[in-house]
Nucleic acid binder design. Structure first.
Length: 274
DNA sequence: CGTATTTGACCGGCGC
DNA sequence: GCGCCGGTCAAATACG
């Protein structure tokens, strides 16, 4: 709103032609509209995050109170292990520790939806870490092959990831991370540069730590260059008005993008399922 | 030549 | 016990 008045002031001083004036007022209207939309979406996201955090903490409480009540496919194995060791009653401390470690790694599973360009057919998700591919498989539920990666620091770093194209939107890559890195990122540069421009839509962590389960949406703004080329107007880009305009336009573009909406919906429904 | 990727073989868990 | 399926291994191949 502040930028609005600023724009109007400069408009009067310059006594611009009416066509230019119309263009400006249209842009200001658009700016106001996307500001409102952005505000609304931010509020919605805050509500969703709040609900998720509440549900997640309740789920964790419930799991602690009722171990073994989890009926997901992933936990069936664990359940069998618990039952098996219970009936035998002879598992050593070493085995128990190993199982606990494995469980801890399995608990730190997070899913990340990554929007790629339509022309990008690879299964590479640049996340700042270095990965070594060790397998690829076509699964039953999805005709797109699933790629298996291990962290390059393995076996020191036990983290694995699976990358597969989304069944609903094949331009969206679904990366499933297993475990936590015990070393810093190899290159942060890889996350923001390179031939691919990614929009990391959402991470859906399900670790036991609440602090790490806070929802995050990371936008790679390099993508916007295609729509809003500012390379020839470097004198304008430093003004707060223009920067806000850019931010608003980026937000507007994302909210209008149907694939963004579908991926966001998938991420939110994923959170609720968990 | 060393390293990364590909791809068919193999293994273990699970349901019937 | 058998077959299916997802995950992993490791030899072959590609690449710089």
């Amino acid at each position: 709103m502040e930028s609005n008045s600023l724009l109007n002031t400069s408009l009067d001083l310059n006594a611009a032609p009416s066509r230019f004036q119309d263009e400006r007022s249209a842009l200001v209207d658009e700016l106001n509209r996307v500001s409102a939309e952005n505000k609304r979406l931010t509020e919605m996201l805050a509500v969703v995050s709040e609900n998720y955090n509440g549900l997640h903490s309740k789920l964790m409480e419930y799991k602690i109170k009722n171990p073994g009540m989890d009926n997901t496919a992933a936990s069936r194995k664990r359940k069998a292990e618990i039952n098996g060791s219970g009936s035998e009653g002879s598992s050593s401390d070493e085995e128990t520790c190993k199982k606990l470690r494995e469980e801890h790694i399995k608990a730190n599973i997070s899913r990340v939806f990554v929007k790629t360009q339509a022309s990008d057919t690879g299964l590479i998700v640049k996340d700042g870490y270095q990965w070594r591919k060790y397998g690829q498989k076509v699964t039953r539920d999805n005709p797109c092959p699933r790629a298996y990666f291990k962290c390059s620091f393995a076996p020191t770093c036990p983290v694995k990831k699976r990358v597969q194209r989304s069944l609903e939107d094949q331009s969206v890559l679904v990366a499933t991370y297993e475990g936590e890195h015990n070393h810093p990122q190899v290159s942060k540069l890889e996350m923001t540069s390179g031939s691919n421009r990614y929009v990391t839509l959402s991470s859906v962590p399900c670790s036991n730590s609440l602090s790490s389960s806070a929802p995050s949406i990371t936008l790679d703004l390099t993508r916007q260059k295609t729509s809003y080329d500012v390379s020839n107007s470097s004198s304008k880009v430093n003004t707060p008005e223009f920067q806000q305009f850019l931010v608003e336009q980026m937000a507007s573009t994302l909210t209008k993008d149907p694939s963004f909406k579908s991926a966001l919906a998938a991420a939110i429904s994923g959170k609720f399922r968990q």
